[in-house]
Design a protein around this nucleic acid. Structure first.
Length: 301
DNA sequence: TGCCAGGGGAAAG
DNA sequence: CTTTCCCATGGC
């Protein structure tokens, strides 16, 4: 058994652009990260790397404490939540002045940002994402950690390494309820398990080459590659086109008849260097029904 | 280019 | 209870 958790003291999460309580659920459980859950006492519990993190509001102040009291982790927290507020500068460069769909989406989720996750975490998460709801993706990722990951605290596990996934038994993977995604994870794990520096190598690539290289991995197509580039490698110009964004662009932007690739091109051209951030606002608004778009039967592109 | 299989569970009928 | 659908991809 592990020692029980020793939490460091609560401290304010001071962000240049704050995250209000109304935005926090979408921020932590809106489909870009799959490692956060809301506890019974209204705290958010998450795992960042090998640290367990708690988040809560005291009045309007967001506070955090974690199992890692090092200053290095405090810095990691700041990066993770974009404490410098650099994304706000990019949001201002988006065409919200002439785009009422976008401006309404941004107004609906003040403070929403792209979390700076580890590439490994995003690749594991989005390899599980096809044909799944966010809640189910979170469960699959959680099962992977519990069955194959190293314990980091009581009831908390780090995500498994590619090596651990590659050498997992069929029974172990079966118990993670991955379905056909199990072969995606194992296939990618086999290609990356002997490349401990893959994150660094991929990071050095320009975005088009990064997307291309990611798609050489089994289970990684255009959409998953775009998500990993956006959420894991901080490529904010990357514009993932998922089923919700298809609905937004075909309905609210009236781009019927466009292929997924054409919609991606449109997104990059229309939204520019912060296309991925725009995507996150549109995704959140569409999913909450605010744009009047519905998922309906998978509309042929 | 288009079509469809492929876990399994939640949501819808 | 039964059917449909799910932040897609790969293979034909």
């Amino acid at each position: 058994m592990m020692d029980s958790l020793r939490w460091n003291s609560w401290r304010p999460l001071t962000l240049s652009c704050p995250i209000p309580a109304s935005t926090l659920p979408e921020q932590l459980d809106g489909g870009q990260a799959f490692r956060w859950r809301l506890s019974d006492n209204h705290e958010w519990l998450g795992v960042i790397g090998r640290a367990v993190v708690r988040l809560r509001f005291r009045e309007t102040q967001l506070e955090w404490c974690s199992s890692d009291s090092s200053s290095a982790f405090a810095k990691r927290m700041g990066d993770y939540f974009d404490e410098s507020g650099i994304q706000v500068q990019l949001i201002d460069q988006l065409p919200w002045r002439s785009d009422v769909v976008l401006s309404q989406a941004i107004r609906s989720y003040p403070g929403l940002r792209i979390l700076r996750q580890d590439p490994h975490e995003t690749l594991v998460g989005f390899l599980c994402s096809s044909n799944k709801r966010i809640q189910q993706i979170r469960m699959m990722v959680s099962s992977l950690a519990q069955n194959l990951g190293e314990p980091i605290a009581e009831d908390y596990y780090a995500l498994p390494s590619w090596s651990a996934i590659a050498s997992a038994s069929a029974t172990q993977l079966k118990s993670c309820a991955l379905g056909y995604r199990a072969k995606f994870l194992q296939g990618t794990a086999h290609k990356l398990k002997d490349r401990p520096d893959w994150e660094k190598e991929f990071s050095s690539l320009p975005t088009p080459q990064l997307l291309e290289t990611l798609q050489t991995l089994p289970g990684v197509g255009p959409k998953v590659a775009a998500c990993v580039a956006l959420f894991g490698f901080g490529r904010w110009e990357s514009f993932p086109v998922d089923t919700w964004i298809v609905q937004v662009l075909t309905q609210a932007y009236r781009l019927q008849g466009y292929s997924a690739k054409q919609l991606e091109k449109f997104g990059q051209a229309h939204f520019g260097a912060a296309a991925g951030i725009a995507q996150q606002y549109l995704f959140a608004s569409a999913r909450s029904g605010q744009l009047g778009v519905r998922l309906g039967k998978n509309e042929k592109l």
